[in-house]
Each structure stands twice: as structure tokens, then as C-alpha cells.
Design a protein around this nucleic acid. Structure first.
Length: 312
DNA sequence: ATAATTTGACCACT
DNA sequence: AGTGGTCAAATTAT
């Protein structure tokens, strides 16, 4: 069959990379299938709990991410190329669109990406972001800032985030991450959110039974950010009838609960508080692929019952 | 000189 | 029509 090297040479490097990603993902899926057929993958509980399976799922989903990112950037490049060939200037990849305001804003909004909301005392999360907008938000004291990954045009990384200072805590920022980082930016520091206790999944409640929660580090993560998260909530954006102010109230309540319940393990510098609350939003159901913050999708099964027959 | 931010306009959604 | 997300020229920072 068609191996990667046998593809027509007109394929760009990015297209080849997309194919390679898909092939890798297929390989991981095959391995996963083998594991599923192997009874030793199941514990006495009958649940899948092998870390290997989690790892494979992670890899598979990441493969999709990478492929999508690569393909998206290829598309952009092709468009700009064809436009250059025809007559117009290229706006993507080149500098700026010179005063052709008529065609301005031919962009799509809101891809079907996942979003997470993190409440933190800092806007820093270890990734390199580029601010591209700011907006006054109705009924909000502070404006909302919009950031995209600095690798957007480099590597087609589609990750964005929105940061807004919270009304009450004044020191706290609500950060909504949209989309996964697909860039290979190895200079980034520790991610902002690490789930250390699987028991808190699904219940959306805080569970800091162990006040000496070790600052879990990523495989090769640094310690200067020392992120500690205590709660993650999953929700569906479409089914959230609450107004922005309601959300804020909810968060401040959560924040109060958390503060009152023992965040003293925080060893941050003065004024620095770790992330205390994160909510996970899916714009499309049935996909627990986000692993950027160390989230372990498999552990949703405690309450969410991941079904492996993907309806839809 | 280049990169990042600011800011008003444009546009998608509801 | 109102609100919020994105674009891109102008401005500021490095």
C-alpha cells in the first residue's frame, strides 16, 4: 500500500507530517485494540485502569490534534499562495493587509474546540501568548483580553485564551483556554493545571483531603510555577443558561470554599496563589481529548461513564 | 528593525 | 440590535 515515502512529491512537508501523524495514531489505536482484547488490561473492578491505555488514548487524541493543526496551516498557506498567484496580496503568512477594508473580517468564529476555565492569581501559564484584542464586557468591571498562541503562524497552533480579571477577588483572573496547543514549543514551563486527585472528577467538588498535596510535576516540568489545582468542573456551554455575573458568583463561592478549606499548602511567593478552580467546557460532546493540563480523561468514568460506542 | 500591544472597526452570533 | 470575538493599522516596547 501507499507508504508515506511513496506519496507524490508535490506533497508539502506539512502534508506528509499530517499523514505521518495519522499513521502514528492508527498504530496507537491498533495497540489499544490489542489491549482491549487482553483480559489482563482489566483490574478486578472490571474497569479499564491500565495507565498504558490512558497513555495510548492520549497519544491517539494528540495525533488527531496534530493532524488537524497541520492541515489547517496547510490550507492557509495554500490559500495565500493561490491568492498571490492570481492578483491579490496575501494576508496570511505575509505582513498585513494593506488598507483593503472591504474584505476585512472574512473569518470564521468559534471552532468546535474545547474550552476550560481556570481561575488563577496569575495570567502566566508557561505558554507564549500574543494579545490580539481586548473588549469591554457587559456587567463586568474589567475588560476581557484575548490571546492567541505565538506559534499560530509558525506551526499552526490554534490555541487561544481569554483572560478577565474577576470582580471580587481583584487579584484573581479567570482564564478560558480554547483549543489545544499543538505547537512544539519546548521552552514552555510547567502547565497551569495538574489534576492530582482523580476522586474529584465528576463530582465537581473540591477534594483536598491531603493538605500536603505534592506539587506534581510534569515529566520534565520546572517547578517555578508550582501549579496546584483542586477542582475541575465539566460543563457544556450550550447548556449553561447562567449569565456572566452568575458564573462569577459561582466562582467566587467556589473560591471562598476553597480558601476556607485549606489552600495553605500553597507555597507561592507573596501574592501568588495557585489555580484554584477550573471548569472544563466542551463545545462538542463525546470528546475528552484535552490533556494539556495533565487532565486524565479516563478518570471521568467515575461519574460520567465514558461509553466507547461514540454516538454521533 | 522587529516584536508586541493597543484600539477601533468589522463581523458572527443570538 | 446588542454583545462579544477577531482583524489589522497604529503605536509602543525591546
Amino acid at each position: 500500500m501507499a507508504s508515506v515515502s511513496a506519496w507524490p512529491e508535490r506533497l508539502s512537508g506539512k502534508q506528509k507530517r499530517a499523514i505521518e501523524e495519522l499513521v502514528a495514531g492508527q498504530e496507537y489505536a491498533n495497540q489499544l485494540q490489542i489491549l482491549f482484547c487482553n483480559p489482563s488490561s482489566f483490574q478486578e473492578t472490571g474497569r479499564l485502569s491500565s495507565p498504558k491505555i490512558e497513555e495510548l488514548i492520549h497519544k491517539i487524541l494528540r495525533s488527531f490534534d496534530q493532524t488537524l493543526a497541520v492541515l489547517s496551516s496547510v490550507e492557509s498557506a495554500e490559500v495565500s499562495q493561490s491568492q498571490t498567484a492570481s492578483n491579490e496580496d496575501s494576508s496570511i503568512g505575509g505582513r498585513r493587509r494593506p488598507a483593503s477594508k472591504e474584505k476585512r473580517g472574512c473569518y470564521k468564529r468559534k471552532r468546535t474546540a474545547q474550552a476550560w476555565t481556570v481561575v488563577s492569581a496569575t495570567m502566566e501559564d508557561g505558554h507564549a501568548w500574543r494579545k490580539y484584542g481586548q473588549k469591554e464586557i457587559l456587567n463586568s468591571e474589567h475588560p476581557r483580553s484575548y490571546f492567541r498562541c505565538t506559534r499560530k503562524y509558525d506551526q499552526g497552533c490554534l490555541a487561544t485564551k481569554q483572560v478577565q480579571r474577576m470582580e471580587v477577588g481583584s487579584q484573581m483572573y479567570r482564564t478560558t483556554y480554547i483549543g489545544t496547543h499543538t505547537c512544539t514549543n519546548h521552552s514552555f514551563k510547567a502547565p497551569p493545571l495538574i489534576i492530582t486527585d482523580s476522586e474529584c472528577w465528576g463530582t465537581a467538588t473540591v477534594n483536598i483531603s491531603d493538605s500536603s498535596i505534592p506539587i506534581k510535576q510534569h515529566h520534565d516540568g520546572q517547578s517555578d510555577l508550582s501549579p496546584t489545582s483542586v477542582a475541575v468542573k465539566q460543563e457544556t456551554k450550550e447548556e449553561t443558561p447562567t449569565t456572566p455575573s452568575d458564573l462569577t458568583d459561582l466562582d467566587s463561592v467556589m473560591w471562598k470554599d476553597l480558601m476556607g478549606d485549606g489552600l495553605e499548602y500553597c507555597s507561592e511567593p507573596a501574592g501568588m496563589v495557585p489555580n484554584v478552580y477550573a471548569s472544563c467546557t466542551e463545545m462538542r460532546s463525546g470528546n475528552f481529548e484535552e490533556l494539556e493540563f495533565g487532565i486524565k480523561p479516563m478518570e471521568f468514568e467515575n461519574d460520567f461513564e465514558i461509553e466507547f460506542d461514540d454516538s454521533e
